[in-house]
Computed example of a mutant assay.
Amino acid sequence: MQGKTIIITGGNSGIGHEAARTFAKRGARVVLAVRSLQKGEQAHTLILAENKLANVDVMNLDLADLQSVRFFSEAFKERFSSLDILINNAGIMVPPHQLTKDGFELQFGSNHLGHFALTGYLLPLLKKTTNSRVVTVSSIAHRKGTIMFDNLDGLTGYKPMVFYRQSKLANLLFANELDQRLKSQGISTLSIACHPGISTTNLFKFGKRDAPQFLKRISEIFLQTAEMGALPTVYAATNESLTGGEYIGPDGKGNRKGQPTIEIPAPGVYNKDMMKKLWDTSQKLTGVSYL
């Protein structure tokens, strides 16, 4: 990883932070793209405490605000001449119904549309960088997801988990559609999807509520740590045998925990008509057109 430049959205906590630690230890220049600069600096300090030579930058990015996405992208391109790996990691899970600054339902707007716009803005830099990759983090929650094109903003009915599943399905479809479009235009950049299984960092954190200690202890037995949850991201970003379009997840029962492997999504997930409609809708909503 020596000399490579990597952006990790939401790299201040959870699996994003664990991936950032791993890349920094191996000589990469890691940019933590975070909504809270204070939390980003705290994460930066923790990485430096482990490795004084770590090359880490903290930059502000609010995926729920398309203007922030554009400003981040412009600032990054002014500072950096290449981008080896973009990791679309940040995510919001099951909040009460809220809209982004641009009027999108918060989970779809942040988890999918924000990353769609970010990738589009940074694609010229990715195309210029040899062997570059886009890694988009989905979830096993996508399995029960559907894209509700007639209610994307949730104004005619909202259930937090239903909309979380929708956003994670959108992540997976975007990653696959992006790879197909890159290949069709002869662009060497790879697009790969992954998911962390179920790790103890992303459970029982709904707003300010927390789980009882006994539930946390049970989860630690049956689920996996943030370090393990980050391995599919690291694998997707670095494994040289990948050719683009793969979906990486844990190899254990139900893909909830284990070592990273190439996972086969449920039959029918990659519906071509739905993928094209999602792509066209995303371009229209964000105003970002590419490929």
Rank of each mutant, 00 (worst) to 15 (best):
A170H: 12
K128M: 13
K101Q: 09
V58M: 04
E240M: 12
A211Y: 07
V69L: 01
F108G: 02
Q2S: 02
K168Q: 14
F71L: 13
I6L: 09
N151I: 04
I192R: 04
G3E: 07
G268Y: 11
N89I: 05
P212L: 09
V137L: 14
I92Q: 06
E74G: 01
D273A: 15
E41Q: 13
T129S: 15
A43P: 05
I7H: 03
Q224V: 08
F163G: 00
A175F: 08
M161V: 08
E105T: 06
L182K: 09
N89L: 01
K39M: 08
A54V: 08
F204R: 09
F76T: 02
I187R: 02
P196Y: 04
R29N: 13
Q213S: 10
L173Y: 05
K277Q: 15
A193M: 07
E50C: 07
F80T: 01
A33T: 00
Q259A: 10
C194L: 04
K101T: 01
M148N: 15
L83E: 10
L215T: 14
G103I: 08
H17Q: 13
N51F: 00
P95Q: 15
V56A: 02
L106H: 02
H97F: 07
N12T: 01
Q259V: 07
K216V: 10
N131W: 00
R217G: 09
S241N: 14
G120T: 09
A266Y: 08
S289Q: 07
S13P: 04
F206Q: 11
K52Q: 14
Q2Y: 00
V34N: 12
I8Q: 03
L113F: 08
G120M: 06
L169C: 04
E18C: 14
F174H: 13
F204G: 14
G11Q: 01
T45V: 12
T45K: 15
E105D: 11
K284R: 15
Q38K: 11
R181N: 04
L32P: 11
S36E: 05
N12H: 07
F76C: 01
N239T: 03
F76I: 04
S138P: 00
P196F: 04
V69C: 03
F104G: 10
P95D: 12
L48P: 06
A49T: 12
I8H: 01
P95Y: 11
T200W: 02
K216T: 14
D102T: 04
S282P: 12
T261P: 02
L61E: 03
T100G: 02
T129Q: 11
K25L: 14
T136F: 04
T119H: 10
N88A: 11
A28S: 15
L48E: 05
M59F: 01
V234E: 13
E263N: 09
Y235P: 03
F108E: 08
R79W: 00
S139A: 11
L126C: 00
L152S: 07
A19N: 02
M1H: 08
R256S: 11
D210S: 15
L291A: 06
L155M: 15
A19P: 04
Y235N: 03
H142F: 13
A236S: 14
Y270W: 15
R256N: 07
G258Q: 08
M1S: 14
T238V: 13
